[in-house]
Design a protein around this nucleic acid. Sequence first.
DNA 1: TTAAATACCATGCTATACCATATAGGTAAG
DNA 2: CTTACCTATATGGTATAGCATGGTATTTAA
Lengths: 154, 154
Amino acid sequence: MRKTFLFLDTVINKVDNKGRVSLPADYRSIAKELNTQIVLYRSLTSNCIEGCTEELMEKLASDIETSHDFFSSEQDDLTNLIFGDAKRYSFDSTGRILLSEKLIAHADIKDKAVFVGKGRKFQIWNEAEWAKEEQRVREEILQKRPTIKRKEDV
Amino acid sequence: MRKTFLFLDTVINKVDNKGRVSLPADYRSIAKELNTQIVLYRSLTSNCIEGCTEELMEKLASDIETSHDFFSSEQDDLTNLIFGDAKRYSFDSTGRILLSEKLIAHADIKDKAVFVGKGRKFQIWNEAEWAKEEQRVREEILQKRPTIKRKEDV
DNA sequence: TTAAATACCATGCTATACCATATAGGTAAG
DNA sequence: CTTACCTATATGGTATAGCATGGTATTTAA
């Protein structure tokens, strides 16, 4: 029935004192249907956790293999950074994952986790941080809007 | 459930005074599922130990065969360096391997070993050395990021 | 015969699997 | 339009299994 496999929507779930949090049901069903696991890692650019399917990771590994020399330092650095930080997360029968200390610290997660869909990937934010980020993104879009409008007018 | 065989995550395990260290369970399961052994060798470029499956070694052998002249000195050097240094390591029922003196000396391993996933390969570092290396890589990648993106897009 | 490598046993800890309860969304009957 | 019921998801709590690690025995090699 499902034709696309996109992480969508924004969902806020509670994180208990062990670091457990329910993965949104919608995200779970993607992993289930693709028969793959979820991989989480620290975002390179923001104070948030980023996630994707293991399938996408596999694709990335192949891409790196073919686009760089086997012994190149670029490939070395890239693979260290990406795969060294990524970790498979399996959810239990109730759909929860256990966030690692490293991830929680990086995103400053307290008792709430905000899941934000990004298509092939998704992000997990601290509630207040996400509010700020969303504000920032919206303002940026508004600034660009006049340019778009002008084009439409022409 | 698992369809991919990527070495992921960063795990710190203790090395006892005999040089024994637990291979992370996740890494072991890869060797098990692929029904292959783990091969370790001294990194050509860093003060760390590098590891992969024997399967990947096979692939590397084929690649070298096709990418250089069969009798070239380049191929001689490469094969000497890599295959001459590599050694199979089998783990016992509790999942531990015994690191050789040569490897321990090269990576300056003391009482802790840091396993860093690299996708098809992984590395083993001295704790302090890895901290420095991770820092260096993060800074470098952030600078090069536009270049990488361009490559991925193509 | 001694040292070193390998295999096996025991223990404590923690991730994870499972059960039970609560909450919300949706549907159909009143 | 309201109420009651049902299903799916989220969350709290607890038990269990898997893992890392200390220790010891057994085998292999020098």
